[in-house]
C-alpha cells in the first residue's frame, strides 16, 4: 500500500476510535472528532451546492463560462431576480433591514407551499389509499402460496383493514368507545407490529454499520503498508487514546478535588 493511502487510512482508523471512545463518556478526543466533522461537512456541502447547485442553476445562465459576469445572455437575464432575492436573504445580518429578507423567504415558502399541496395530496394520500384499496379483495389469490405470503389476498385485505383501523386510531374528533374503540385498538396493534418491525430493522442496520466499522479497522490492519507495522500502530492508537483519556480523567479529578477543597 502506498504511504499516502496508509496515512489516510490511519487517519480514518484514528477518527473511528475517537468516536468509539464516546462509549466510555464524553471526552476531548470525541469532541475533537465531532468538531472536525462539523467543519468538514459544512465545507463539503458549500462546495457541493456551489458546483452542483449555484453554477448550473445560476452562473451558467448569467456568465459566458467564467466566474465573472462579462455579459448577460439576452434569454437569461431573468436569472438576475433569484440572485437578487438570494442576496436579499443576507439582510438578516442587519437588525434595521432584516425585514427585507422576508420577501425571498415568502417567495421560497409560496413556491414550496404551492408545490406541496397537489404533490402531497397525490403521493401521500391518493396513491397510498389507491394502493391499499386496489387489491383489497382478491378472491382468486386469497391464500397465495401458503405460509405468510405477502402477495396473497389475505395479506392485501389485512393491509387495507390495517390502514383503515390505524387511521381510526388517529381520529380524535370522536370519542373512542364501543365499536369505534375496538377498531382503533386493532389499529394500534397494527401500529405496534409496524413499530416493532421498524425498530428491529433499524437496530440491525446499526449493528451492520458497527460490524462494517470494525471490519474497516481490521482491513486496515491486514492490508496496510506493512501488516506488522499497522498492528503496532493500531496498538499505539488504542494505547494513546487510553492514555489521553486517563490524563483527561486525572485533570478532571484534580479540578473537582481542588473545587471541593476551596469550597470547604
Amino acid at each position: 500500500m502506498p504511504m499516502g493511502t496508509f496515512l489516510w487510512t490511519t487517519l480514518g482508523a484514528f477518527l473511528t476510535l475517537c468516536i468509539f471512545s464516546f462509549l466510555y463518556r464524553d471526552n476531548p478526543l470525541y469532541k475533537f472528532a465531532e468538531h472536525l466533522m462539523v467543519g468538514v461537512s459544512a465545507g463539503y456541502f458549500v462546495i457541493l451546492l456551489w458546483h452542483n447547485g449555484l453554477v448550473p442553476n445560476l452562473f451558467s445562465f448569467l456568465s459566458d463560462g467564467h466566474f465573472y459576469f462579462l455579459w448577460l445572455d439576452a434569454k437569461s437575464w431573468w436569472y438576475i431576480f433569484p440572485a437578487v432575492l438570494g442576496v436579499m436573504m443576507w439582510t438578516r445580518f442587519s437588525r434595521k433591514w432584516a425585514w427585507i429578507s422576508r420577501w425571498p423567504i415568502a417567495i421560497y415558502i409560496g413556491i414550496g407551499t404551492g408545490i406541496t399541496i397537489p404533490l402531497v395530496m397525490r403521493t401521500s394520500i391518493n396513491l397510498q389509499l389507491y394502493a391499499s384499496i386496489r387489491k383489497a379483495i382478491d378472491w382468486g389469490n386469497f391464500f397465495g402460496s401458503g405460509y405468510l405470503d405477502s402477495t396473497a389476498g389475505y395479506s392485501q385485505a389485512l393491509i387495507f383493514v390495517g390502514v383503515i383501523a390505524a387511521l381510526f386510531y388517529f381520529f380524535f374528533s370522536k370519542e373512542h368507545t364501543g365499536l369505534f374503540n375496538g377498531v382503533a385498538k386493532f389499529g394500534i396493534g397494527i401500529l405496534m407490529i409496524g413499530f416493532g418491525a421498524s425498530f428491529g430493522y433499524t437496530v440491525m442496520g446499526r449493528i451492520s454499520l458497527f460490524v462494517q466499522r470494525i471490519q474497516a479497522i481490521g482491513n486496515w490492519t491486514a492490508t496496510s503498508w506493512h501488516a506488522t507495522s499497522s498492528y503496532l500502530i493500531i496498538w499505539i492508537l488504542i494505547i494513546g487514546i487510553f492514555v489521553v483519556l486517563s490524563i483527561y480523567e486525572f485533570i478532571q479529578y484534580m479540578n473537582r478535588r481542588g473545587a471541593a477543597q476551596s469550597g470547604s
Binding site: 395530496m121 405477502s150 395479506s155 393491509i159 390495517g162 409496524g194
Partner: peptide, 27 residues
Amino acid sequence: KTTSWLLNVPNLAAKRAIIIGLGLGAV
C-alpha cells in the same frame, strides 16, 4: 419468511396510515 411478511404487510399498513396522516397534516 415471517420477517418479510411482517415488514411487507402489518408494517406497510402502519406506514401507510402514518403517511396518510402526515399528508393530511402537511396539506
